[in-house]
Design a protein around this nucleic acid. Sequence first.
DNA 1: AGGTTGGCTGTAATTTTAAACAGCTTTGCG
DNA 2: CGCAAAGCTGTTTAAAATTACAGCCAACCT
Lengths: 202, 202
Amino acid sequence: MPPRSDRLTERQSEILDFIRQSVESEGRPPTRLELCAAFGFRSPNAAESHLRALAAKGAILLEEGRARGIRLAEGLGLPLVGRVAAGGPILATEHVEARLQLDPAMFSPRADYLLRVRGMSMRDAGILDGDLLAVHRRTEARNGQIVVARVHDDVTVKTFRRDGPMVELLPANPDFAPIVVDTRREALDIEGIMVGLIRQDG
Amino acid sequence: MPPRSDRLTERQSEILDFIRQSVESEGRPPTRLELCAAFGFRSPNAAESHLRALAAKGAILLEEGRARGIRLAEGLGLPLVGRVAAGGPILATEHVEARLQLDPAMFSPRADYLLRVRGMSMRDAGILDGDLLAVHRRTEARNGQIVVARVHDDVTVKTFRRDGPMVELLPANPDFAPIVVDTRREALDIEGIMVGLIRQDG
DNA sequence: AGGTTGGCTGTAATTTTAAACAGCTTTGCG
DNA sequence: CGCAAAGCTGTTTAAAATTACAGCCAACCT
């Protein structure tokens, strides 16, 4: 049967997180007994059935007869988000172009995803067309921070400046005009703040 | 006894490379038997004694009584090179400030190390003070490529332009002057070409 | 010539791990 | 209510993996 990729239960997510953490910090997946120790199970079968459930939902792959034969289905790493369709959540599966193998904790606060920048409106801040912006999800921003914002169903990268109910989204390029939003009349959603940048060519 | 960190024999390096590869591609270290299969050993003790040797030299850590209890001493990842002392090789241990957990193949051609950029001479190319430049080691460059070059024992990042024996290293900032080198009279070493960039703050 | 080191074969005991079987409790649903 | 699914306990068995012991051979050093 094909991986069904159903949604995970809360408990299953915890188990999956623990597996991720093991691989990241110890360089190998846990055994059933290590899962028991971590979650307080008294029976290895508790771990076993969770693993079966995760495998059935396509979150992991189980290799039969091998010690620590757990493989994460995702390639770990950070999701790279491309062009975001109007209205949809930014991390929706259909926007994820790829996953890049890098440590989210390389940035501070930690990066949650990478967003491919379109256009040159932030050129003078050293953010060029095609660059990958490392973004930390956060709904609030302080003045001067570079944010990923959603205005009128449009996702944009700009410097944030608030003055009471008035928010200005400032470009870093004289060819572009600031976006001014009166939050009493229009919706403005902060999707996250910039925590870094990656450029993939010279 | 403290890790002696001696130099590895050629065979030991091969073993270590295989362990690295296992962790990277399968998410877990190999067992003794997997090492046997990979190298054609007929005795698990061949693998065992290699592992002991690697552990004695500080290249790995062995955890007793655990399946796949091999931990790499290094954090893998790319070496981050800071201020480069005049004359020394760029990757000398004393210049490596840290190792960043990311996939060198994320860039193309693959990144060999990261160099912390000093100054604003490449500002208009979106390369700012403090940025980490992903560098591919190469001694030749084509016109227009951004290179890491060594002139008069000084390491610098500039755009490369050659006209016969004359090489110009061009800044991307009107406040800085190009560096002109007559390769018939002065030494000019290309250390590598830029293949990407990482910025660690907003 | 003798000793050390690296690199292996071969065997076997012991411990870790995976994985099966049987059953219990709670929650939510038609 | 009946019943399925999630989330466990408890026990057992077989396979996988570690690790000890007893060697052999070639290269290198003194």
